[in-house]
Amino acid sequence: MTGKLTAGLAIAVPIVLFGLLGPLLVQDPSRVDDIGLSAPGAGHLLGTTQTGQDVFAQLAYSTRGSLIVGAVVGVLTLLLSGFFGIVGAYAGGWLDETFSLVINVMLVIPGLPVVIVISAYMPDRSLLLVSVVLAITSWAGSARVLRGSTLSLRSRDYVLASRVAGEKRWRILLVEILPNLVPLLASQVVFAVIFAILGEAGLSYLGLGASGTFTWGTMLYYAQNGLALRLGAWWWFVPPGLLLALFGAALALINFSIDEIINPRLRSQTRAARRGWRMSREQLRKAKEATL
């Protein structure tokens, strides 16, 4: 357990638990009350919105919504990039050429404008639809990375050795190649989740997100519409913004620690690791020059 992984998990796990369990414990987030905009107090832990809706309840439902988007996009990206990247590269020949073409076409399609066009075209958008749109515009990059790694793995001696032993092709792919891609897949999925949650928040903030559901983005959208900033209602926009930033940072930290597992050379690139070497200042300077 590195420091980065510990810090990342310490932030991400409570947020995930809050998203899973929070909605079961709070009141209806849409219930309107005639107390209007009120600061955090006894009845309402994080105050209320302009129409007297409980901010804490909205935050719990929003966390769940954003996590659903992240999870759906993560799984879809994993499946799509794995299928087009790994299977194509392993099979080779015309299948590889075709899959490669599909990946390259998807790669040059500009993601956000397409998402905006599709979202604008659909008047009634569910959370699932937004997730699917985000997934199909974002999987190509990681498919490209996976394709490269698979191409290098498929010509390794141990893969040839299992062919000589008489293994079936699908078994070589699943048992000999895939386990060596797991760290890479994990980091790609974590990155896809960050991208999806931030992308969904951006869409919702523009008013193009899912209709009728709560996410961190929709909360910010309504806070902005309700003039929260001008009215000084910090309890309305700070909590969703803070959770969004914290969760993104936590996933990035987890991603860094996975990167260090894939590429052990990165471990000695941090200042903390260098301090552990107990070298003189002069030696450290030289080491830094050598690795830059």
């Binding site: 001696d157 050795a161 299992s162 000589v164 032993a165 293994e167 000999e176 386990p179 060596n180």
Partner: peptide, 26 residues
């Protein structure tokens, strides 16, 4: 076949028993 490079011809992910058991099972 015995390959040239013993560092590349064994899968780093699997133990010795796996490497011997697979040809036996097949």
């Amino acid at each position: 076949m015995v390959f040239q490079d013993p560092f590349a011809s064994l899968n780093p992910h699997h133990d010795v028993a796996h490497h011997l058991a697979r040809p036996l099972r097949l």
